[in-house]
Design a protein around this nucleic acid. Structure first.
Length: 348
DNA sequence: AAACATGTCAACCGCTTTAAA
DNA sequence: CTTTAAAGCGGTTGACATGTT
């Protein structure tokens, strides 16, 4: 294990997996004294643990209101949707799932849901199809030459794939000028590992039995649901294939657009408020901090069209901010990747 | 049957936020 | 207002289980 100095080490207390005896002591203590003042718990409960460890054990495992069975398709859907809206705010997501902890949700996302989306050709960070993300790469004015280089690489990569190249490449082609602004710009930062994405797309195209299916699944993007039968992975591990199968019915009919940020935040400010007021009947729980406001202000600047092409409308007042960001990025590109900016072999 | 790879999940780390002194 | 301890949080690790070669 690590040799870092922690509070637990200083106190020379036990670490690692809890024994049934320790759990019993913990339960006995809480039933007698209740929770709170965790630093005092180890001494009072007769445990050789640090308070933090006790709190974690109680909150993540021993609490009687916790569910210990597997996640339901409904819970799965909610996690995906919320993750698409607010990202890795696990505690907030967990508040919407009674009996689940942030740790549960986080683990479930990392071990199951993230892979499931990847296998379907959807970027688990942006919740967009990889094809759209890659199209966006080529459509960013501030990264003009960089985008062209990427497109060249993409074309090289995809000419290697067997089948009808026309159908497969067309979805990754540059649609210059169509997507600009905060949303597409964000994609550049959030989906930085191009290689991984290429591999995922390759995997996706290989998994589909024929190019016709790909045509149906990708070209007709409004019909592209998470549960699309042709997207079920055939070459992935048994567990992911199995879980994908489990949810195909529950998620059928849902489009990837359903999981985009705007679906949750754009409709109205009331919806926003409702969303961030947690499900408690007394309404006492709510999100703290500036995030909802930020999300709202962002959502006002981004308007996705109904077909998920990612077209954005930026308020005039934001233009200078964007220009500044793009200029900064150009500057960074010059410093870090001057060779890419010199690449003039792929102009269009 | 053994070795290796992969998946799962409880627990930990360290940073941030909150609240009390 | 400042300091400090407690609690909250998201990311990461590692032990164990299971699957694959």
């Amino acid at each position: 294990m690590m040799a870092q100095s922690t509070c637990c080490e200083k106190m020379s207390v036990k670490r690692g997996v809890w024994s049934p005896e320790e759990d019993a002591k913990m339960m006995a203590y809480v039933s007698k004294y209740g929770t709170g003042n965790w630093t005092a718990v180890p001494k009072k409960a007769g445990l050789r643990r640090c308070g933090k460890s006790c709190r974690l054990r109680w909150n993540n495992y021993l609490r009687p209101d916790l569910k210990h069975d597997s996640f339901t398709p409904q819970e799965e859907e909610l996690i995906i949707k919320l993750h698409g809206a607010i990202g890795t705010r696990w505690s907030i997501i967990a508040q919407q799932l009674p009996g689940r902890t942030d740790n549960d949700v986080k683990n479930y996302w990392n071990s199951k849901l993230r892979k499931k989306l990847q296998d379907m050709g959807i970027d688990p960070v942006t919740h967009k199809p990889y094809s759209q993300i890659l199209a966006d790469y080529g459509s960013i004015g501030g990264l003009r030459k960089f985008g062209h280089s990427l497109n060249k690489d993409l074309k090289n990569a995809f000419t290697q794939i067997e089948g009808n190249p026309e159908e497969q490449i067309v979805h990754f082609s540059c649609r210059d000028g169509q997507v600009r602004g905060a949303q597409s710009h964000q994609n550049v930062h959030e989906s930085t590992d191009l290689l991984d994405q290429l591999q995922a797309i390759k995997k996706f195209t290989e998994a589909a039995p024929g190019s016709k299916n790909i045509e149906t699944a990708v070209t007709a993007s409004p019909q592209w649901g998470y549960g699309h039968p042709t997207l079920s992975p055939t070459s992935s591990s048994s567990s992911s294939a199995c879980s994908a199968g489990n949810t195909s019915s529950s998620l059928q009919g849902l489009n990837w657009q359903d999981y985009l940020l705007d679906d949750v935040f754009v409709p109205s400010e009331e919806n926003m408020a409702e969303y961030f007021m947690c499900g408690d009947t007394d309404g006492s729980r709510k999100i703290e901090g500036p995030e909802p406001t930020q999300a709202l202000s962002q959502s006002k600047n981004i308007v996705m069209d109904n077909h998920g092409t990612g077209a954005t409308v930026i308020r005039a007042s934001d233009a200078s901010f964007l220009d500044e960001m793009l200029a900064k990025e150009n500057e960074m590109m010059l410093l870090e990747f001057p060779s890419l900016l010199e690449d003039s072999t792929f102009e269009s």
